[in-house]
Design a binder for these strands. Structure first.
Lengths: 340, 340
DNA sequence: GTGAAAGCGCTAACAA
DNA sequence: TTGTTAGCGCTTTCAC
């Protein structure tokens, strides 16, 4: 409570206040090594009375250990990433490790900068979304010498290891399900984001599988920015005005799919008879809609958990073997908007 | 590219590779002090060739400066907080400062732990949600000697300074608008979260203003967990089954309000004639609904921006004066669900 | 414009 | 069980 000096407290202050050496104070505060109950109590009391908060900067420098895991993701505005984060946090909570998040806004150069910033804090591991990075970023990750897990996508070659789903395959599977249900005039609606590689791969897998059956996407529509739900409405209206004969709409995410669904229901369209719909992600929001949109769960929480487990295991035991690619398989949820 | 030694690179390596002293290398890498173009070029080349990433831990220890701002919020699952974050990030991007986020899950003890962890990295400032903290947490913030901005709420006494809205007043204003529109049988629906102090204060302000006009809430309903949209539906159905004469529903957030709106529209109820609705927050999602839910914008991005500006200004100039409480005033958006 | 010395606050390693 | 010594990798300060 002696708050005269603005200088932050150090171990030395606690040492002096308790009459115990700095080293032993340090041991008590870290629960390391054997310390008698008596001195332990003295130290803790002094530390508490002073309001001492250890300086991790100095600790990290001395011990060459930083219990941080850099998590680098494109955005927080998309519910996908908070869910991945939750998965990561749930696993790291049982370890010494702490996640630190960096946001890239889907921009490769920003990703490179953020990565550089984070690596300069010498974290114990990196979890980063996607497999596409600048050459410099890949080089940094390789050179860092720490475990790196690339998440959400496995269509490519990871720097170190990857956990995710195959978006190409996800697109193909959905295309097959749609064709199987007998839809023929298919429209696609998505984001205007050339840098969203996972959306791009889904689209590629989708058109590829359609092509195998001699089907081509009738029309497409893209958006950027704004309320996804609203954009979903607007795009749905627009594409159907241009191509009224469309009998299926594949949305690159559930949010715009939900907007489309609300719009078509208002129009009194027969879903999934006259027109079918499907999105992607399996977001919780869908549960509150009047009808269940067909979708595919991207295993977000599971990806986060698995990635965190890999990092934690390798921090524990750097020499153990580990899987290079962990593939999870999304399953189609037919809901009420895709005939079986 | 000489990747034989797993030891991370140090300034010394760059110094040796470039034939320039460590000190001058450090100057170049930080753009500090005068360095001749020739040596600057040599250094940068060597650093790049080696793939050197500076060690901020050592830098921070030596310089006693850490360009991090601790941001402590309850959750990322609620779109409110990512929006605050976006506001903070937009301001800090133009400075040397970087936000680092900690999540409390609305738990005071977890908040205390997270705060302790973050302070142990000696950040340049703290932005923390709410005014309610454990005594220990308040003591830590006071003792830290760094600027602390408590955000989102101003009904209380900040440790240092606060930026936000008065939730009590927000509740009162909504109550007055509802009574003015002639509604009389009012129900309340919210989260089962005693620790969401802002929701609690809104409710208090709400009931207080109703009481002034001799009106009492007819019935209430609380939920926890699950899809808010779905819960909104279910709670709306439940409360109206119990109290069919209710003519207005006040929801503690827009998400459950949206669920209620979708449900009532399906039931073919006359909104806002027969029954009115209002939520809170002004979330973007609402724009995609068939009708606009009445709500109140909580100025999330603005709060984030303002808080970041205060931190940045005080890091620049620690001795300047500053406002202790910055109050923003939310305005009612009547939408289509509240008569004027 | 450049370099040498000292030390930031802590912990590893060793000694007692 | 406790203490001492020597750095961790960088920046500050001061000298050249």
């Amino acid at each position: 409570m002696a708050d005269t000096d603005p200088r932050p407290l150090t171990l030395r202050d606690v040492s002096e206040a308790s009459g115990v050496s700095e080293m032993t104070v340090s041991r008590v505060l870290r629960n390391r090594g054997d310390v008698s109950e008596a001195t332990r109590a003295k130290v803790l009391e002094a530390a508490k009375a002073l309001g001492y908060v250890p300086n991790k900067i100095a600790g990290a420098l001395a011990s060459q250990r930083v219990n941080l895991v850099a998590v680098i993701i494109p955005s927080m505005r998309n519910m996908v990433f908070p869910e991945v984060m939750a998965g990561i946090a749930s696993v790291l909570e049982d370890t010494e490790l702490q996640p630190v998040v960096g946001i890239t806004d889907y921009m490769p150069e920003k990703e490179e900068r953020v990565l550089y910033e984070m690596l300069s804090w010498r974290p114990s591991g990196v979890i980063i979304a996607g497999l596409e990075h600048t050459e410099a970023a890949k080089a940094m990750m390789k050179a860092s010498g720490i475990p790196v897990v690339e998440i959400m996508d496995i269509d490519g070659t990871p720097v170190d290891c990857a956990v995710g789903i195959s978006h190409r395959r996800a697109g193909r599977e959905m295309a097959k399900a749609i064709l199987r249900a007998g839809y023929q005039k298919i429209g696609f609606l998505g984001t205007k984001m050339p840098l969203d590689h996972r959306a791009r791969k889904r689209f590629e897998g989708f058109t590829e599988a359609l092509a195998k059956s001699g089907v081509e996407v009738v029309d497409q529509e893209f958006y950027s920015g704004g309320s996804a739900l609203k954009k979903g409405r607007e795009m749905t209206q627009a594409i159907l005005e241009r191509e009224p004969e469309i009998d299926f709409l594949y949305y690159s995410n559930d949010m715009i799919g939900a907007g489309g669904l609300l719009y078509l229901m208002e129009q009194g369209r027969d879903i999934p008879g006259e027109i079918g719909l499907a999105g992607f992600n399996g977001v919780e929001l869908l549960q509150g809609l009047p009808r269940q949109l067909a979708t595919m769960d991207a295993h977000r929480a599971e990806i986060g958990r698995k990635a965190a487990q890999i990092i934690a295991a390798r921090v524990e035991n750097p020499d153990a073997d580990y899987e290079r690619i962990v593939e999870l398989t999304p399953k189609i949820a037919y809901g009420d908007t895709l005939r079986r």
